[in-house]
Simulated scan of single mutants.
Amino acid sequence: MNPPVEDVIELEQLCATYALKMTQGDIGYIIEHVCTDDGTYSAFGETYNLEDWPSLVEAAPKGLFLTGRPVLELDGDTGSGEVPLLFVDQTNHHMRMGWYSDTYRRTENGWRLRTRRMTFLRRSGGADSGRPHDPRRPKPSAGRPG
């Protein structure tokens, strides 16, 4: 069964907003308007709570987040999806590609992103969650578990 068109459009806009605001460096907007209060981001073998996102984004390269439409599975007020991603570094135009695996929850303010997990595609043909040894990347805080 296909999810309601209104929900699909709202979630497509949510994912597009995330990509645009990441490209613009507006993590505050994402935390305030895109994520649930208990939202998390997982990559590099770690899970980061919302309070960690600003320092994580600050340490990361800046550039273009180009995403495709999400493939969605919805069940009432919750759902999951996968979103293709191409990131192009602004300073050298090196690319990172892969996909996000998401969970969503409908709130009183509409659909929000609850969890986002990154999988990178490698030249070798493999896929993984990233390089956990990057010295610029902060460790998650001791806040809420992910």
Rank of each mutant, 00 (worst) to 15 (best):
W53Y: 14
E51A: 12
Y29Q: 02
A142S: 12
R117E: 11
R137H: 09
Q13S: 10
M22V: 14
W53S: 01
G143E: 07
E46P: 00
T23G: 08
M95V: 11
T36K: 02
T78V: 14
T17F: 09
E58G: 12
G39T: 04
H33P: 08
I31R: 09
M97Q: 10
E6L: 08
N92R: 05
G81R: 01
V88G: 05
A142D: 15
S80D: 07
E46N: 13
L50F: 11
H94T: 12
G45D: 05
R122D: 13
V34R: 02
T47C: 12
F120E: 01
G63M: 05
G125I: 00
T47G: 14
F87E: 08
I31W: 07
E12H: 14
R116L: 12
T115W: 06
T47A: 08
P70T: 01
V88N: 07
T40S: 11
D134P: 04
T67F: 07
V57Q: 10
L11D: 03
G110M: 01
L66H: 15
G28F: 15
Y18L: 10
E12W: 14
P4M: 03
L113F: 09
V71P: 06
L86K: 00
R122G: 07
R117A: 05
H94R: 14
S141P: 12
H93F: 14
P61S: 08
V34D: 02
F120K: 00
P3N: 10
T17W: 05
A60I: 02
F65N: 12
E51D: 15
G130A: 05
T115V: 03
V83D: 12
M1A: 11
L64Q: 08
W99G: 04
R96V: 09
R122K: 13
Y48T: 11
G76M: 06
H93N: 13
W53G: 02
G146D: 02
P138H: 06
T17C: 10
T36H: 04
G25E: 11
D134N: 06
E46K: 11
R117C: 01
D52A: 02
N2V: 05
W111S: 01
Q24N: 04
M118N: 07
Q24M: 04
T36G: 09
P138V: 02
T47R: 00
T47Y: 08
R105Q: 14
R116E: 03
W111E: 07
R117N: 03
E73F: 05
P70I: 00
L56I: 07
Y41L: 08
G25Q: 07
K139Q: 12
W53M: 11
T119D: 07
T36E: 08
R112P: 08
G130E: 03
S42F: 01
A142F: 04
G76Q: 03
W99F: 15
R112H: 09
I9E: 06
D89E: 13
D26K: 02
R131P: 09
L11T: 07
P145V: 03
E10I: 09
N49T: 06
